[in-house]
Design a protein around this nucleic acid. Structure first.
Lengths: 115, 115
DNA sequence: CATACATTTCCATGTTTATCGAAATAATGG
DNA sequence: CCATTATTTCGATAAACATGGAAATGTATG
């Protein structure tokens, strides 16, 4: 995952409603949810929600699939995994993050040296 | 970590230069780096960088400490841990994220039910 | 105190986001 | 093909963000 994609994904999640949407879709699992149900669950007007869904989609965090009249949205776990992977590897130092607050065990640094 | 803090942290990292700054500070470790050195390393004008540092600081991702003339910035690993923790617990579903792409082992969900 | 240094704040500018009603687009059923 | 339903696109508006030079602030030194 390159830095640009990471910035895009972070930007997509960095908004109250969109974070809520993503959490909801994660909870919904593989079945996903139609746009209308999401809008109702979160109390966001359809047109606003559509805007946010588009952002999440553009960032690759959710997927869209038409089911007759409804558009079903599902969370893309792989994308989230990739994001988490990047952050863990690149933004947690060769020491601290996942386990102990200060320590030694050099994290399995991958070959990410772009920017 | 509440949803608002998460949104703030994500927003702080969702920018090319700021993500680069944070990565750099993580690499720099506990010693941290003075603002000038960061600006030079990234090729960003001082005044622009100062703006970005302020954003990261406000989101609680970095810390500032004066050392005579310089302001030394260091990454706050605990904050990053908290962010990663929230994402892992709330945005990775009771199934997929850290380990297997599709599975069963319900992740150790914590008591986060705010929004 | 005058000077140099490190960094921030101020300011003006242009760009991107967020919001939401109204109109447009898709899909289904009679 | 008309009506209904589900969702998106359009358009206008307000707010937040990003940029970078110039001026201001804080700190050390001779």
């Amino acid at each position: 995952m390159d830095a640009d994609s990471v910035v895009a994904a972070l930007g997509a999640l960095a908004q109250e409603h969109r974070l809520a949407v993503f959490r909801l879709l994660v909870q919904a699992g593989d079945e996903g949810m139609p746009a209308g149900a999401i809008a109702e669950a979160l109390g966001v007007p359809n047109s606003s929600l559509s805007f946010h869904l588009a952002q999440l989609n553009r960032a690759g965090l959710i997927k869209q699939e038409r089911q007759s009249r409804s558009l079903i949205y599902t969370a893309d776990y792989a994308a989230m995994n990739a994001l988490l992977g990047y952050l863990t590897e690149n933004c947690c130092g060769g020491a601290a993050c996942p386990a102990e607050p200060q320590g030694g065990t050099q994290a399995t640094q991958s070959q990410e040296r772009t920017a």
